[in-house]
C-alpha cells in the first residue's frame, strides 16, 4: 500500500542515492532474511498481546456482537429482544428519517470538505509567502483546533443567536437583514459548516504548510529564471508537488466529516426540523433515547457499508494514482 508519497525532505532529485558502501545496511538485510526462530515468534506475540487483547475486546468483538444485535429486536430495557432476522434492515430502508439523516451527513461532508481543503491551502500559501511574524499566523490559524468541541459549539451558538448574537449584530449594522442562522433549514447546515471550518481548518493548514515548506526552493528559482510569475509558479510547481498531501487531506477530511456529531448535537441538536441531524445522531437517538439498540445497530451497519464503499473507492483511486 504505497499510497502517500512524502516529498523528499532534502529535495535532491532522487538519483543521487548515498554511496552503497555502508555495511550495516547489508547486515540488516541479512538479519531479515534469516528464518525466524520460535523465540522470535513468541517475542512477537508477547509484544502484540496487549494491543491484540484490546483490539479483540474493544473492536472485533463489539463488531461481531453489534452485527448480531442488528438482527434482534434488542432494547435497552430488555423487552422484545428476540431474533428477528432482517426486519430491522427492512425497517431502516423504509425509514425516511434514516435516509434524511444520511443525506444530511453526505451534504455536510460535501460542503465541509471542499472549504476545509481549499481554505487550508489558501491559508498555508499565504503564510508561506513570507509574511512577517509567520509564527503568529501559524498559531492563529491552528489554535482553534485545540479547543474542545463543546467550547466551539458554545461560542458559535452564542454568536448565531438571532437577537443578541455577534453575527446578526454585524449584519444589521452593515444594513443587511439578520439571518436566522440556526432556525432556517436552508441556512443551519451552513452555520454548522462555518463553525466546523473555523475549528478544524488549522489541522489541514498545518499539513499543507509543512508540505509547502518541503518543496525545494530550486524549483522556484529555476522557474523565476524562466520568467514564471507567482501564480504560474503556484499552479505549476506548488500545486502538483502538493498532490500526495492533498490526497491524504481529502481522505482524512471525508472520513472526519462523515462521522460528524459533536458540534451538530451541541449547536443545533439536529434542528431545525431535523435539517442538520447527522446519521450518527440518528443512531444515537434510535438506540439510546429511543431504547431500540437492535434497530440502532442495523443503521450503524448500513452506515458502515457506506463508509466501506467510500474507502474502497479511495483505495482504488489512490492505487491508480500511484501506479
Amino acid at each position: 500500500m504505497s499510497t502517500v508519497r512524502i516529498p523528499a525532505p532534502t529535495g535532491e532529485p532522487a538519483p543521487a542515492a548515498p554511496p552503497a558502501k555502508t555495511s550495516p545496511g547489508k547486515r540488516s538485510t541479512a538479519r531479515l532474511a534469516r528464518p525466524r526462530s520460535r523465540r522470535d515468534n513468541i517475542h512477537g506475540w508477547a509484544f502484540s498481546a496487549p494491543f491484540l487483547a484490546f483490539f479483540l475486546m474493544f473492536l472485533v468483538w463489539p463488531m461481531i456482537s453489534g452485527a448480531y444485535m442488528s438482527l434482534t429486536g434488542k432494547s435497552l430495557t430488555g423487552a422484545n429482544s428476540g431474533f428477528i432476522g432482517l426486519a430491522n434492515y427492512a425497517e431502516a430502508f423504509g425509514d425516511s428519517d434514516m435516509w434524511r439523516s444520511l443525506g444530511n451527513t453526505l451534504y455536510f461532508t460535501l460542503i465541509s470538505t471542499v472549504p476545509l481543503v481549499v481554505i487550508a491551502l489558501a491559508l498555508a500559501a499565504l503564510v508561506n509567502m513570507g509574511l512577517p511574524a509567520q509564527w503568529l499566523w501559524r498559531l492563529s490559524f491552528f489554535s482553534p483546533f485545540l479547543l474542545a468541541s463543546t467550547v466551539v459549539s458554545l461560542f458559535f451558538a452564542w454568536m448565531y443567536n438571532p437577537e443578541l448574537g455577534l453575527f446578526n449584530d454585524v449584519l444589521v449594522k452593515l444594513g443587511i437583514p439578520p439571518v436566522a442562522w440556526l432556525n432556517d433549514p436552508a441556512v443551519a447546515m451552513w452555520a454548522v459548516v462555518i463553525a466546523t471550518v473555523w475549528w478544524t481548518v488549522g489541522f489541514n493548514f498545518l499539513l499543507y504548510l509543512a508540505a509547502l515548506q518541503n518543496i525545494p526552493q530550486q524549483h522556484y528559482e529555476a522557474a523565476s529564471l524562466d520568467g514564471a510569475g507567482g501564480w504560474r509558479q503556484f499552479f505549476s510547481i506548488s500545486l502538483p508537488q502538493l498532490g500526495p498531501t492533498t490526497v491524504m487531506i481529502v481522505i482524512l477530511q471525508i472520513l472526519a466529516s462523515l462521522k460528524v456529531f459533536d458540534q451538530i448535537y451541541q449547536i443545533t441538536a439536529g434542528g431545525p426540523g431535523g435539517a442538520t441531524r447527522s446519521i450518527v445522531q440518528y443512531i444515537f437517538e434510535a438506540g439510546f433515547t429511543g431504547y431500540r439498540l437492535g434497530y440502532s445497530a442495523a443503521i450503524s451497519y448500513i452506515f458502515f457499508g457506506l463508509i466501506l464503499f467510500i474507502a474502497l473507492v479511495q483505495v482504488f483511486i489512490t492505487r491508480k494514482r500511484s501506479a
Binding site: G270, G273, G290
Partner: peptide
C-alpha cells in the same frame, strides 16, 4: 407513553414539525 415527557424525543418531534 414510553416516548413522552420532559426532554424526550416527543418534544423534539414537536419542535421539528411545528417550529416552522
Amino acid at each position: 407513553a414510553w416516548f413522552t415527557g420532559s426532554g424526550s424525543d416527543f418534544q423534539s418531534y414537536f419542535a421539528e414539525n411545528v417550529q416552522n
